[in-house]
Design a protein around this nucleic acid. Structure first.
Length: 782
RNA sequence: GGGCCGCUAGCUCAAUGGUAGAGCAUCUGACUCUUAAUCAGUUGGUUCUAGGUUCGAGUCCUAGGCGGCUCACCA
């Protein structure tokens, strides 16, 4: 739609399509049905390509890319090596979710809130594995700052990314350990509350725990650490669960008060965030307050607001008390003063902390892009030389769904000489996260068939950035953040000229289907089993069903097969319906009646055009009709330019169509102009029917090669305007006045005073004030 | 709990601070052997609530209600 519209607007349009085709579903299908993932994937692609082609989407299929084919993933590997050369790809030991039944690593999203695998139902274990990461954290600040350079992105998406990056400004403070020359470093955003610290908490995984725990506490601490390790992260970070912890027997000194305070470990402190240690300020932090209450730890107020609060944590700003030399300072000022003091005394420093963590890209799965690295005992991780790319996925593998990745079992594939020293070495058997494949595909589209390089720089810089990107909100963080990171990294590498990949972003809604649900059992009932759809009841239990619109899916029996609808009404009707029913960013509810409505509209257009006789057109001009025509052009163009409001654009076209139907003289030249304008405006929406009708009107060239109609401002001029008469802001009538007088306030007032409505309401009253709005109204204030 | 969005006719959505509209649905009639299609007409509003600003508020401000999405022991 947008592509067709822009093309008619005279732009060079690159409108490609491709397939993000690596991933777990294909591999699972292979395990379940014994089909090779490649075969299964290519079959699906062929089917989907056919469906899409029926819709008349005007894709440039010559630029089609498929991420699971070597001519594409060869360059994914090449880019990985570029990142590796930049020091952005590295390996480290990390704690991951391990499914003991399927013998595989799972992403966080694949573990439910109870800590169970979505596939096997097994309790997920934590396991430390050596994994590949990308240093997206190096780009945290730029990813955050540059959101400001994206005025055409939805605020919602930007807010989500800001949230995800999670920048917080604060300080690191050192608490010296009693009886040791070491210290515990905590991160805090509230250095102004440091005088209120009554304990320090370490994450259970913190390395100092083992070192500092006193012998009398050892048994209990060990038990607690073990207990925490068994919990899933979702479990551990659930908001309303009680906080648990235990003291380890050691103490630190509060560097500002020099008081001795105990060290605890607790489940609410995460090792991955900050320094893995926090200072406990129960008076001014809700979590610390709850923890202190539970374990009877002292609560010291150091900030006061207007009222004294003791029954909960006071987390707002205020004035410092019980804080020595800082007493009486407002908390905002105290923050910087205390950081400054800490820096001077070398017991802390200003620190910016991000929530964003490095991107774990290793997958112990077969159906993904192989990581092009060879491990050598002497040389370490050695990149596969560029001329040996791609590292192809071996095809003869066994899919059991058990044991390690199929790749890890292929001796002849794994064992290769080291590219540096030639000694026997081993291939990396992990594949890449599929988000790697999709983080740069838009760059490949600019030069999709290039066999010599990843893309030609002149091509990529000619087209990039993408003017209009369309995707679902589900990618608000993942794909859109990764792609922004990739683009910035490649910019730094000198491979592209743009720092942001997508100029405008449209997050389109999904089509939802009417779903019948038994409110008691929660079961979904297929519509064809229901006797009376007006009053739906469960065919078995006769319970009254609830009807809701939900995302279409097989398990909910609420799907619509696009092929069926296209067969019945044609692709144009389907396009019109989906565009008219809701604004593009909103979900839309599939409704057969509304589909019919669009079908009827297109039929009306068909009749309108086929009943028109182009041969007998006169030279008559219908001024009123002409105004409606040009108003429609103006409105449709505005709807496009102001955020692609297709639904209202279609409304405008209906109004034009109605006006044409009502026209008295159907042979006038204006009528012809109206018919042709309607077709041109409708062409991006209903490409097939408009093309057909366009040719019936005697045009040789395709309608899609025509330029958009242009508004003739003179056609919009009206001879007369309706002047609204208001008394005290209330509408009391209206009169028709010549348009040429519309900007003369005095004249308008004059007209208004003479109007019947004004005469009636103003009789015997004094007018205090008169407001005349040019071309619109006159308001008498009494 | 934080952030974002929304609340207008039965439904889905419009309305630069200036007469609240469109499509669908409804209802009535015409045409028709009947149905479908088509045509003509028709109904429909406390713009979530309460205050405020204004000559004038669906629109701006404040407070609240309801719904959705999203994030969340992030120190």
């Amino acid at each position: 739609m947008i592509a067709r519209y822009r093309r008619m607007g005279g732009y060079r349009v690159l409108h490609p399509m491709g397939w993000d085709a690596f991933g777990l579903p294909a591999e699972n299908a292979a395990i379940d049905r014994g089909i090779h993932p490649q075969e299964w994937t290519l079959q699906n692609i062929a089917q989907m390509r056919e469906q899409l082609q029926q819709m008349g989407l005007s894709y440039d299929w010559e630029r089609e890319v498929t991420t699971c084919l070597p001519d594409y993933y060869r360059w994914t590997q090449w880019l990985f090596l570029e990142l590796f050369a930049m020091g952005l790809a590295y390996q480290k030991e990390a704690t991951v979710n391990w499914d003991p039944i399927d013998q595989t690593v799972l992403a966080n999203e694949q573990v439910d809130s109870e800590g169970r695998s979505w596939r096997s139902g097994a309790l997920v274990e934590k396991k430390k594995l050596r994994q590949w990461f990308l240093k997206i954290t190096d780009y945290a600040e730029r990813l955050l700052q540059d959101l400001d350079k994206l005025p055409h992105w939805p605020e919602k998406v930007k807010a989500m990314q800001t949230n995800w990056i999670g920048k917080s400004i604060g300080a690191e403070l050192n608490f010296p350990i009693v009886g040791s020359d070491q210290h515990i470093t905590v991160f805090t955003t509230r250095p102004d509350t440091v005088f209120g610290v009554t304990y320090v908490v370490l994450a259970p995984e913190h390395p100092l725990v083992a070192e500092l725990t006193t012998p009398d506490r050892l048994a209990e601490v060990t038990e607690f650490v073990k207990q925490v390790q068994q919990q899933s992260e979702t479990d551990r970070t659930a908001v309303d669960r009680p906080k648990q912890g235990t003291p380890i027997g050691a103490f630190v000194l509060n560097p500002f008060t020099n008081k001795e305070i105990p060290i605890w470990i607790a489940d609410y402190v995460l090792y991955e965030y900050g320094t893995g240690a926090v200072m406990g300020v129960p008076a001014h932090d809700v979590r610390d307050f709850a923890f202190a209450k539970q374990y009877n730890l002292p609560i010291v107020t150091v900030i006061v607001g207007e009222e004294e609060i003791t029954d909960r944590a006071y987390t707002e700003s205020g004035t410092l008390v019980n804080s020595g030399e800082f007493n009486g300072r407002p908390s905002e000022e105290a923050k910087s003063l205390i950081i400054q003091t800490a820096e001077e005394r070398k017991i802390g420093k200003r620190r910016v902390q991000y929530r964003l963590r490095d991107w774990l890209i290793s997958r112990q799965r077969y159906w993904g892009c192989p990581i092009p690295i060879i491990h050598c005992d002497d040389c370490g991780a050695v990149p596969v030389p560029a001329d040996q790319l791609p590292v192809k996925l071996p095809e003869n593998v066994e899919f059991t769904g058990r044991g390690p990745s199929p790749l890890a079992k292929l001796k002849e594939w794994i064992e290769v000489p080291c590219p540096q020293c030639g000694k026997p070495a081993r291939r990396e058997t992990d594949t890449m996260d599929t988000f790697m494949d999709s983080s740069w595909y838009f760059l490949r589209y600019t030069d999709a068939k290039n066999e010599a390089q990843v893309f030609d720089r002149s091509q990529v810089n000619d087209w990039m950035p993408v003017d209009q990107y369309v995707g679902g909100i589900e990618h608000a963080i993942l794909h859109l953040l990764y792609s922004r990171f990739f683009t910035k990294a490649l910019y730094d590498r000198g491979l592209v000229n743009c720092e942001e990949p997508f100029d405008r972003l449209l997050t389109q809604g999904m089509v939802q289907g009417l779903t019948y649900k038994n409110p008691i059992t929660g079961k979904f009932i297929p519509a064809h089993l229901i006797e009376n759809l007006q009053d739906p009841t469960d065919p078995d239990t006769k319970v009254k069903l609830v009807t809701v619109y939900e995302k279409m899916s097989k398990s909910k029996y609420n799907g619509v097969n696009p092929g069926d609808v296209i067969n019945k009404y044609g692709a144009d009707t389907v396009r019109m319906f989906t565009l008219f029913k809701a604004p593009p960013e909103k979900d839309l509810e599939w409704d057969d009646a509304d589909v019919e409505g669009q079908f009827r509209f297109l039929n009306r257009v068909w009749r309108l055009v086929t009943e028109f006789q182009p041969s007998a057109v006169t030279t008559t001009i219908d001024k009123n009709l002409r105004r409606i025509i040009h108003r429609a052009i103006q409105a449709v163009i505005e709807d496009f330019e102001e955020g692609y409001q297709f639904n209202t654009a279609i409304s405008e076209m209906m109004i034009l169509s109605n006006a044409l139907q009502d026209a008295t003289d159907k042979q006038s030249s204006t009528y012809k102009e109206g018919i042709e304008t309607l077709l041109l405006l409708l062409a991006p929406f209903a490409p097939h029917i408009t093309e057909e009708l366009w040719q019936m009107l005697g045009h040789d060239r395709s309608i899609h090669l025509e330029p958009l109609p242009v508004v003739d401002p003179s056609a919009l001029v009206v001879d007369e305007i309706t002047l609204v008469i208001q008394i005290n802001g209330k509408v009391r009538g209206n009169i028709i006045v010549p348009a040429k007088d519309g900007n003369d306030k005095a004249l308008l007032e004059d007209y208004a005073r003479k109007s019947e409505a004004a005469q009636r309401y103003l009789e015997g009253k004094t007018v205090k004030k008169v407001i005349a709005v040019p071309g619109k109204l006159v308001n008498f204030v009494l």
